Simulated scan of single mutants.
Amino acid sequence: MTDRKPPSSGAVLSCTPVVVMAVVAVMDVVAGPGIGFLPLVSLGPAFAGLVGGWRRTAVFGLAALVLCVALGVYDGLFEERRGYTALASVAGVTGVGVAAAVMRSRREAELASVRSIAEVAQRVLLRPVPRTAGPLQAAVSYTSAVAEARIGGDLYEVVASPHGIRVIVGDVQGKGLAAVETAAVVLGAFREAAHDEPDLLGLGDRLERSVARELEGEKFVTAILGQIGTDGEAVFLNYGHPAPMVVRRNGTVDFPQPPSFALPLGLGAHGNEGPEPYRVDFAPGEQLLLYTDGVTEARDDEGHFYPVGERAHLLKDPDAHRALEALRADLAQHSGGPPHDDAAMLLLRYHGHEGHGEGKSVPIA
């Protein structure tokens, strides 16, 4: 037995004008001219104006006028003003519906143009990360809290530099266009400094100066910077950001914490010492998940936070992109609706490196 899909709201609205005019015609014939159902024929073009273009609305308006004339003649209403009043009502509603359909079509065209511009902006700001970078495989997931938006205040990047694979995941305070602008500043500075700075502390200092020049007041950016080489270790700088999650080959999960917590980027002028770099074992066959607080602070209906550490088993798929998509789907199911904050996740898999004893690829446990 096959499952039948319920009709969509668009299909229902498309049929409504025909149904309404048919019902009005039957009621008018049954009840007779004394009840005065004839002006209700104008509901046909009124509903037609809700979906479709102006031509469709005009066709239903013309059909409503023909129906109005036929019923008026049948009821003998043109011998008095009632028939002409009904015709004027149908014509007026049709005209308004056509005008509304034209305006809606223009707005939809403008919205499509804005969306295309947003897609270009996304490709420039949050361009796709490379599928492979040195010994790593990478996959990324991004969900914006703003309805219909594809970009927001979270940021990520992976750069294969002469000094190792360098990554960043960050979260700009606030939402909307201001947050997008700040994210662009941080990513631009990171992409340039990742190639120029020989050590991670120098890279962090460059970002701090860039953000401090652009931000005003108490605005800030939490971020975690990482550098991954071929020595089985990853080095991190944490600027007030959630700790990374490392999934070991045996399935256990670690959340390595920095030796001391530093202020987010943009608040360095407050006199706090910068972050201390700390090393984390990251060997072939292991996975590293960097994320923003939109992931860990997502709540279910009972107010429970998303337990990302308990969902590490969802990352077992051999394909990194499918594994991360499974985690993203589970996060959406946990929150049970639109996200309240931007949520970005960057998954890195260490699959070994050619020329090392590990071989080219190490399976994920």
Rank of each mutant, 00 (worst) to 15 (best):
A139N: 03
L288T: 03
L327T: 05
E192M: 12
G49R: 07
V24A: 04
F47W: 11
F37D: 04
S260A: 15
F47C: 10
E110M: 13
R55M: 12
Y84A: 11
R213H: 12
V159D: 02
D317N: 14
G352W: 06
G76L: 05
A178Q: 15
G170Y: 01
E276Q: 15
A91H: 06
D254S: 13
P339M: 10
Q173W: 12
V20F: 00
E354N: 01
L237Y: 02
V124L: 14
L203I: 01
G359N: 08
S161C: 11
L87W: 07
G355Q: 02
V167D: 02
E310F: 07
L289N: 00
S116G: 13
R349F: 10
L50K: 09
M21L: 08
A212P: 04
E358I: 00
S141M: 10
G174F: 05
L327G: 01
G152K: 05
F305H: 10
A121S: 09
M345H: 04
V308C: 13
G240C: 04
E108V: 06
L315M: 04
P130W: 07
I165F: 06
V211K: 04
G188M: 08
Y84W: 15
F282R: 11
S113K: 13
V120A: 14
G217Y: 06
Q333A: 15
G34C: 00
R191E: 01
M245N: 00
G337K: 08
G134A: 01
F282V: 07
S9Q: 11
F78C: 07
R166A: 02
A312D: 03
R209Q: 15
S210W: 07
P363N: 06
Q137I: 09
P242W: 02
A63G: 10
G134N: 00
L289P: 04
V69S: 06
Q173S: 15
R56H: 06
L38R: 12
E192D: 14
Q122P: 04
V185W: 07
R322K: 10
D341V: 06
R249E: 14
